[in-house]
């Protein structure tokens, strides 16, 4: 928490929702019955994080809290409870390696090690150029395609050390990359099925 207060002073511009976002936020709030508007806290925080460089800065938390007349303490409780909310700044690409048993058994350890080696950072750190943040997360719910890595909003599946390195290289080069299975299988179809992606 002391860290986030440190970043507060670094913040250049105070956070606010632009007009289209504000309209969307109002629509979300309107979905909840009168007197229960504070329930809109989760979608609003998600929206705030998305438009605040992938993390919830103190001013963003305060902004959302004020919008729903929630004290900052309550907002902070929610933001720290859900692991998908980042309370500290993240890089442009947030690499989230799944470390739960199914992925682990299929080799997530190698994927993680490859990330650390390639990026030169440890889990929980951000590269100096603010491009990559590496975190280890709990089950991403794609066990059939283990090991899995989530980068920002996309899932990358059936990974190994080489394929994750290639992905990272492409991201660093600014190339467009395709999400999904790296071995070319469709969805979670059995491994020996010969249906290729484009046929599906």
């Amino acid at each position: 928490m002391t860290q986030s207060s440190k970043y507060n002073s670094v913040q250049r511009k105070k956070f606010y929702f632009s007009q289209p976002l504000m309209d969307k936020a109002k629509k979300i709030i309107a979905q909840y019955p009168e007197g229960r508007e504070r329930s809109a806290i989760l979608p609003l925080l998600e929206m705030a994080q998305r438009h605040n460089g992938g993390w919830l800065s103190p001013d963003a938390l305060e902004y959302v809290g004020d919008m729903l007349s929630l004290p900052i303490t309550r907002v902070w409780e929610i933001a720290t409870f859900y692991t998908m909310f980042n309370t500290q700044p993240v890089g442009k690409f947030h690499i989230q390696v799944c470390g739960t048993p199914p992925c682990y058994l299929c080799g997530s350890k190698e994927v993680k090690r490859a990330c650390q080696k390639w990026l030169g950072i440890k889990v929980g750190e951000t590269t100096d150029d603010k491009m990559f943040t590496l975190t280890e997360v709990e089950c991403l719910g794609a066990c059939a395609n283990a090991p899995v890595v989530q980068i920002n909003d996309d899932y990358f599946e059936d990974l190994n050390a080489e394929s994750i390195e290639k992905i990272l290289q492409d991201l660093a080069d600014g190339k467009k990359i395709e999400s999904g299975s790296m071995t070319g299988r469709t969805g979670s179809a059995p491994l020996n099925t010969k249906i290729r992606k484009k046929d599906a």
Partner: peptide, 9 residues
């Protein structure tokens, strides 16, 4: 005074 909370999980 909602000043105290349970943070983290």
């Amino acid at each position: 005074a909602e000043e105290v909370g349970a943070f983290g999980r």
